[in-house]
Every structure is written in C-alpha cells, then in structure tokens.
Write a protein that binds this DNA or RNA. Structure first.
Lengths: 345, 345
DNA sequence: CTGAAAGCGCTTACAG
DNA sequence: CTGAAAGCGCTTACAG
C-alpha cells in the first residue's frame, strides 16, 4: 500500500480510497453540517492515518491570502533589530501567521528586490524599516498601490499615509539630558549622531530643550557630531572637549559606542567617571552594562516596537474588505537606564 | 480604464485586453520560440504598463516548489543566532529564495508547531536548531518522511541521517587552553558550562587534552560548573578559586558572561588581569571587546554557520529528482580572539 | 504561430 | 446527504 511517502496526501487521495468525491472529503474535514457522521468519521480517520495536512499553497491561491507577513530590515544582526523581529515573530505566531524576513544590508537596491520578492510571494502585508541609503520610494508605492498593507518601523518615510512605529528620539534626548541635570551635572556636552538623520537631530533638539528647562547653558562648542558612531570616534572626539579651559562635567552621547569611547577618553585623561564627568549613552546594543563603570543609557524598546508594528499590521489585515482602517503613528517612549556612569552622588 | 488597482494584473487580464489566449501570453512572457515577435512585443509592453508580476503562489502550486526555506531557531535575539540567520538570508537572497523564520523560545511545543506551520506552507527545505527542551523528534520525522530536505545547525540530533553544521567545541576548548598555555600560564582553571550539554562536555574535554599536551596539571578542584552561565554566576563561582591556597593563574570560561563575572571577581580581589591571572571566554555575544581589560575569547562563526547550512540545503534542493545527495556533517573551527585579558607578557 | 484542455490542491455555489 | 463544475493563476502537452 502506498503510504504517501514523499508525496503529501491530498484530499483526492482520501476521496479515492473512500470512493467518495473530493468535495465531500473537503466538507467532512471542516465538519460541515451537511455531511453524515459516518462519512466524517471515515474521512477523519483516514486523514489521521495518513497525516493529512491541507496544502497551504492551494488555500492561498483560492483565498488570495497567504497568512504570511514580510519583514524588511536593514540588518538582522543588530541587537535592536533582532529584538524587533523577535517581537513581530511572537505576535505573528499567536495569530497563526508566518514571517518572511529579508535584510537589506543598508542597500537601496537590495531593499527594492526584497520588497519585490515578498510582493511576488504575495505576503498579506509588509513591515519595513528603510535602509540608510533609500532615497526613492517607487518600490513601496507598488506595495500600497497593489493594496498590500504597509507598516513602517523605526525608519519611516513621511510620504506614505500608513501606520508606523518609531522611537521618540526627542524625548530620549530630553530624558538623557534631564537625567544628567537631575544628578547635579551642570555643563553637559553632547556627542551627536550624524546630523543628516532626523533621529540625530531629534535627540539633539531634546538635549537643547532639557538644557533650557533646567536652566543650563547651551554652548555650541559642547556639541560635536560623530558621523559613524564608533567607539574610536567617540574616543577621538571627546579628547578636545577635555582640553577646553572650561570643560564639561557630563557627556550625553547619541549612541552607546560613542559613549563608550568617551568613557575611555575621560579615564585616559585621568578624570573619574562619574565623579568628575558623568556619561550617558543611547542604546542600540545591550552592551552598556558591561563597561566600567557601567554605562547609563537610554533604552529603545525593540521588542515592543516589533509587537506594536505587528499589531498594527493585523489590525489592517483583520479589517473587513474595503473598510477604511485608521492609521496610527505610534511613538514609543524610551526609558532611562541609570547605572554607575551617572551616579555623581 | 481599469488600471488593475488593488488587483494584481494576471495573465488572463493581459490576454483579454489583447484578444489572445492566456497560453499565448504565458509563452510570450517567457520568450518561447514559437511566439511571433509582434505578439511578444504587445504582451511585454502591456505587462510593463500594468507592472505584471507572476503570482508566485500559482507557480508554487503547479511546480510544487515555493522557493522558500524555513528556519527554526531557539532565539532570534541571540547574537550568535542572529548571525546564523543573517548568513542563511544572504545565501538565500543570492539564490532567489525567501526565508521564513520561526523562533521556538526554547520550547519543544513551539518548535513542533513551527515545524508544522512551515511544512504546511510547503517550504522547500527546513533548517533547524533544536530547542534546549526538545527530547522527542516526531515532528522532524514528519519532515524527512515527507521528503523535505532537513539540515541541522548548531544543535542537532544524531537520530537523523541529514546534513548538519556545528561548532567544534572540543577544538574550541582546546584552543582556549592552548592559548593560555602559550601565553605562559601554568595553572589553568575551567568554568565549565552545564555538563548535561554535549557542547559543555566537549569544551571541557578539549581543555583536558590541551593541559595534557602542554604538560600542565589537571586538577579537579580547578573545574567548576556554571549551570546558567550568567555574569553573576561566573562572579560567585570564581571567588572560591581565588581563595585556594594554590590558586590558578588563569581561567578558561566556557561562555563569555561567566568569563566577565570571573574578570570582576579577580579585580575585586585585588589581583590584576592579565598579569596575575589570565582570562579567556567563549563567545556567544559580541561583548568581549568592551570589558576592561578587553576579554580574549573563542569566536564562533555564526554567519559562516548559516551560510554553510544554506549551502548544504541548496545542494539538496538542486539535486536532480530522486538523486541521492551525499550528507555532509560540517564541523566549523573556532578562532582565538586574543585581547588584553591574556597578554601576560 | 496560436488555442483549448487539463491539472497543481483546494473550496463552494449549484443541483439533485 | 453527496457530487459535478467552476475557479484561484499559472504552465504545457497536444492539436491544429
């Protein structure tokens, strides 16, 4: 007897063996009220025996639904993005959806091809975080024009009327600066991120506002742009700050590697952290707890971002056909993680 | 005119507009030699105009190939596994395949459901790293019984005659110990991983062999098991070692967090790293470079593991139907990353 | 050079 | 209570 080895058993196979029609088998399997008890039993027994699994591809073709969502992300290996993916995956799992993941490696061309491939695979919806390189959006226009729900996370384009989830960078910059001010630091410098990015500008703006609100001076020479955000760059760009006649007593770095570089530069110059100079970072990684002294940082809720983005996606997917879905643009709050590097007292 | 908005244009649509049959459109699109130049041009013009994309679902149903591979991984957020996924994704991208990723969160039940879901989605092949909990393998039997290629990575079961890629943990343990010996350390302790895991036992065995090869004493009281592998545990379990009358002059920890804990314990006790005691870890994360002193470590090639596993998968997928594919069980070498914590001289 | 038919695996309106 | 037919979007052997 053919045990269906290396050939997935189909409804037809069951129908043939039972001398009934495929239609009846199909109905029996979904417990349709029309079908007799006996037939149902015979069908379900055989289905169990042969470990029948409905062919999702065939279902997708009929229903025009794949129960799959696509995710396009700049880099899988970044701690932040892997958290986002994890959040998306957990929610999708609960909903019985599969997740296709593509990484762009920060290349627009690869982003375009990935979107294209996911569209060809007829994903039910697409979650996208733009590559740093991406300047044009035709590939995403195709998504929305085709009627496929699109949700942005972390890196969005404002050219689209779609839902999105981003971090509140302004608030993060504010929180970091406020935290330093509350710890008693008065002369707070800022190692900014690349200022062509909105997110860097927002953190910078939050920094300025917090200075104002806490009655501290804003000094242009206390702000230095770190274009790459590496440890090395943080180290090099902190040195001149320490050579100032009126040197800062705290540093807020817009990313953790730069903060770690600052930490080293300060220690190398013979000053103490946090007694002489406090340092706070902005966390892309989970590294901050390991340096010495442990680095205070602003945490970005990656997992939550993924879960929220997925939630917005399912909201769109579950809407009745044609029903207009209200777009949400969610801004997630950051949190201050206070560690040794800012414990002035 | 209907621009096909919110309805992907099909071959039928093009056929209708051109008053030809779908068969002809299909052939024209694939540049079939039978079709006239004029027809081809008309078809391809219209396809371009409407941005026609072949429906991959329909193709899959016909060809019984989805051009999708499934990945089942314990945790997406682990640096090591995210590297593996990244490696898989890059290779799959080059081959024009999509990747579905499921995480089990180390739960057997979720592993079973994920495998089941991927099978239902008719992935062409499955790459699996077992959850820590997994004790039975019926869900994976279904994969191989159904004729779907299976490849294990990192955590495998030996009950299957399938290809696999793992890390050479024995060699890694050997390398770590050898490195310490070559740096001039003589009394090398070992913070072992949970010894019910094969990988911990292998690292331990490599440690023992290297001691022997370098003429160093193996002392049972120099070996301590760290069940959780946390920083805290590494800290606590290192202290007794430092209280020994004849204390070790080096520590090989089977994982990085434990090594970092050891580092702290040693520094807290007033001893210096690397002058008094050398420390080397085994790297699950990318953290080792950040602690002070920077931690030497054994690196596990996660990206390469993913790329190799994908390569093995495509080897199976590209084999002619029915052709027997030779199974490969690849063991990837680790590398010594030498940093400050072992620079005795 | 082109088309009608069958089929991939399923569902469901229609008919009996 | 059950079945034949049509269709999801495509391809291809067969016929002309």
């Amino acid at each position: 007897m053919d045990m269906g080895n290396s050939h997935q058993v189909t409804i037809k196979d069951i129908a043939r063996e039972l001398n009934i029609s495929p239609s009846t088998v199909s109905r029996a399997l979904k417990d349709h009220p029309d079908i007799s008890k006996d037939t149902k039993k015979a069908v379900s027994d055989l289905a169990k025996k042969y470990n029948y699994q409905p062919n999702a591809i065939a279902l997708s073709l009929r229903s025009r639904k794949t129960n799959t969502i696509g995710v396009v992300v700049p880099q899988i290996v970044h701690f932040f993005f892997s958290n986002v993916i994890s959040g998306i995956e957990d929610i999708a799992y609960d909903k019985g959806y599969n997740v296709m993941v593509c990484q762009t490696n920060e290349l627009q061309e690869r982003e375009e091809k990935s979107v294209q491939a996911l569209l060809a695979s007829r994903v039910d919806g697409l979650l996208v975080s733009l590559s740093k390189e991406t300047k044009t959006y035709d590939h995403l226009r195709k998504v929305t024009d085709g009627g496929t729900p699109l949700v942005f996370f972390d890196r969005k384009s404002d050219d689209f009327d779609v839902s999105s989830v981003v971090i509140d960078d302004y608030e993060g910059g504010y929180q970091a600066t406020e935290h330093l001010a509350k710890q008693g630091y008065k002369k707070i410098a800022h190692l900014a991120g690349p200022l062509n990015l909105t997110l860097s500008k927002s953190r910078y703006a939050g920094y300025q506002q917090a200075l104002k609100d806490y009655g501290l001076d804003y000094r242009r020479d206390y702000v230095i742009e770190c274009a790459n955000g590496t440890i090395e760059e943080g180290y090099q760009k902190t040195k001149p700050l320490l050579d100032l006649r009126d040197k800062p007593d705290a540093v807020f770095a817009a990313n953790d590697p730069a903060a770690i570089g600052a930490l080293k530069a300060i220690k190398d110059s013979g000053l103490r952290v946090p007694q002489d100079i406090g340092v706070i970072g902005f966390s892309d990684w989970q590294l901050a707890s390991l340096v010495e002294p442990a680095l205070s940082s602003i945490s970005q809720p990656g997992y939550e971002m993924g879960a929220e983005a997925a939630r917005l996606m399912f909201k769109a997917l579950e809407a009745a056909k044609g029903e207009e879905v209200e777009k949400e643009n969610i801004v997630l709050k950051t949190n201050v993680i206070s560690r040794e590097s800012t414990q002035k007292k």
